[in-house]
């Protein structure tokens, strides 16, 4: 269970993430119109960015899998999407909470970013059931990669399409260049923290899966089990 550098990565994650939340609470100035509520921004937006990038990365890793046909790439793609899905739950919940504080409703259909994220999330929610429904591990990996590539390409397209003509009511603190320096800094630190969190969870999950694979192989060897009973699983088998 000692992935190289996993411990250092975990410590860095905790330090940066806690630091980010601390400066979000104490250092970042209050937003002029949103007040304290704007602090959700430092949680919600980095989470959303990291989660979406994770989906796209899952697609790129799947391309690598289809090229090389090495199951390690399928495992990497699976884990990237898996972690993104978990973070995606937090994105939707924090997004709904932010909508509630900003506009008084839990959900706002006029809000293209939130809606696009929901669509992407619904698509990826079928990724695990799809894997689970294919028994042959090799075929499962192949089909999952096709899904991951199509999904990874769908993410930016979907955001473009939904955004195209909806009016913008998303709190435009971001990207418009009017974000004051301290807020911008806080946001960047939070983003770095989230990215580190993603990297840590990703590494952790990969190490666990690989170790489990080795453990099973060892068990098979010790028990002279030539034909192991393959339990059906959505996770890739190494």
């Amino acid at each position: 269970m000692h992935g190289k550098g996993l411990r250092g990565l975990s410590v860095a994650t905790i330090v940066v993430l806690v630091g980010a939340f601390a400066i979000a609470a104490f250092y970042a100035p209050l937003d002029a119109d949103q007040g304290f509520r704007q602090k959700i921004f430092y949680l919600h937006v980095p989470l959303a960015i990291v989660s979406l990038v994770g989906f796209i990365v899952g697609g790129l890793l799947a391309v690598q899998h289809l090229r090389s046909r090495a199951s390690i790439w399928d495992l990497r793609s699976y884990v990237a999407i898996h972690i993104s899905l978990i973070l995606g739950v937090a994105v939707l919940v924090t997004g709904a909470i932010w909508a509630k504080t900003s506009w008084g409703v839990w959900w706002l259909w006029d809000e293209p970013t939130l809606v696009s994220f929901l669509i992407v999330f619904l698509l990826y929610a079928t990724y695990t059931p799809m894997r689970f429904a294919i028994e042959d591990p090799e075929r499962q990996a192949r089909y999952a990669s096709v899904f991951a590539i199509a999904g990874g390409a769908f993410v930016p397209i979907c955001f473009g399409a939904v955004r195209a003509q909806e009016q913008e009511v998303h709190p435009q603190t971001f990207g418009s260049g009017e974000l004051p320096g301290p807020m911008w800094l806080t946001f960047l630190v939070s983003l770095a923290g989230m990215a580190l969190l993603f990297a840590t969870l990703y590494r952790f999950e990969i190490e666990t899966k690989l170790t489990r694979g080795r453990l099973r192989a060892l068990r098979r060897r010790l028990l002279d089990d030539d034909a192991p009973v393959q339990r059906r699983s959505a996770a890739p088998t190494i």
Binding site: I119, V120, L122, L123, T126, P129, M130, A133, I134, E135, R139, Y143, F147, A150, F154, I157, C158, A161, V162
Partner: peptide
């Protein structure tokens, strides 16, 4: 090629069709 094909087909297709 999946076991629950009638369920998974629409489930995967619908989000992709939303645009």
């Amino acid at each position: 090629r999946t076991r629950a094909r009638d369920l998974l087909g629409p489930l995967i297709a619908l989000p992709l069709l939303i645009p």
